[in-house]
């Protein structure tokens, strides 16, 4: 399941992309540094609430997707099985030995898997409610050099083109008898060899055309450029930016000044 930007007009969609990105960064920092399961669960709950506000169903579908369920389960199980410290709460027979399950293993497993889940789903929500081009233009408007910004815009523009070209290449190979649908190292090598060269040739010819197109429109001739697309900062955007930055700063200061506070909030079993 791939999360994509959905064009609607919810409160979250209307927020300035930079303000949303600032919240995403602060949230990630807080989630990683706090080390508290109740906090992680609260954050996950918040994301689902925001999903409802955005009028999207992508996040719920993403969380329930096979990829996410498997990934979270693997993190949980690996932590439970690999952590040796803590009180032993049970054991699993494994060949000639036994694998002990400890309370700390369970704590760590739950904490890390929920941490992963909460960061990934907020990232997914950010993607679902933010037009990628608007985000890049907003970054350029606040001072990110426009040459870098346009690298991202071009990458987004060309991703679809290259995807289409790769499909055509694969089709052309199939029509010339290459058994792409068969497995095996030899077939894989042959397919790779027959894909990489034409794809590079096509990419290079596109680069030539793009250079002509961009240089022909004075790209890079000035240090700054005009941005017409209006992306204003409302009071809500500014408040979000300040609040999220302050929260992140507080967590960082807390980590530097009082590294042992807050204590581990996870209830011991």
């Amino acid at each position: 399941m791939i999360v994509k930007f959905e064009k609607t007009d919810s409160f979250l969609h209307r927020l300035n992309p930079v303000a949303k990105f600032s919240v995403l960064l602060s949230y990630g920092l807080i989630v990683f540094l706090a080390g508290s399961l109740p906090l992680e669960l609260a954050c996950i709950g918040c994301v689902f609430l925001l999903e409802r506000i955005a009028g999207s169903r992508q996040i719920s579908a993403f969380v329930l997707s096979r990829f996410m369920v498997t990934f979270v389960a693997v993190i949980l199980v690996m932590q439970i099985l690999m952590t040796r410290s803590g009180t032993v709460v049970g054991s699993i027979p494994f060949y000639f030995t036994r694998l002990d399950i400890t309370s700390e293993g369970i704590d760590n497993g739950l904490l890390i898997s929920m941490r992963f889940l909460s960061v990934v789903i907020l990232g997914a929500l950010f993607i679902a409610v933010t037009n990628p081009a608007d985000f890049v233009y907003s970054l350029m408007r606040i001072g990110v050099p426009y040459r870098f910004g346009f690298m991202i815009i071009l990458a987004m523009r060309l991703a679809a083109v290259f995807e289409q070209e790769l499909k055509t290449l694969t089709n052309a190979q199939k029509m010339r008898g290459l058994h792409i649908d068969q497995s095996g190292a030899r077939t894989l090598l042959l397919c790779l060899r027959s894909t990489v060269v034409p794809l590079i040739v096509c990419a290079l010819s596109r680069v030539d055309d793009l250079v002509v197109s961009m240089e022909g429109r004075a790209f890079g001739c000035r240090k700054t450029r005009t941005f017409v697309a209006p992306k204003t900062w409302t009071l809500v955007d500014k408040t979000l930016l300040v609040a999220s930055s302050a929260m992140a700063l507080l967590v960082l200061l807390n980590l530097v000044l009082c590294p042992h506070f807050p204590p581990h909030l996870l209830p011991r079993m």
Binding site: A133, L154, R206, V212, S213, A218, R225, T226, V228, A229
Partner: peptide, 24 residues
């Protein structure tokens, strides 16, 4: 296809004048 370098029609037409830093 090879010379369009932005994602919307308006951005594409504005691309050159924006590079020239003309007034909005």
């Amino acid at each position: 296809e090879a010379q369009i370098c932005t994602l919307t029609v308006e951005d594409e037409v504005r691309f050159g004048p924006e590079n020239l830093a003309l007034a909005v």
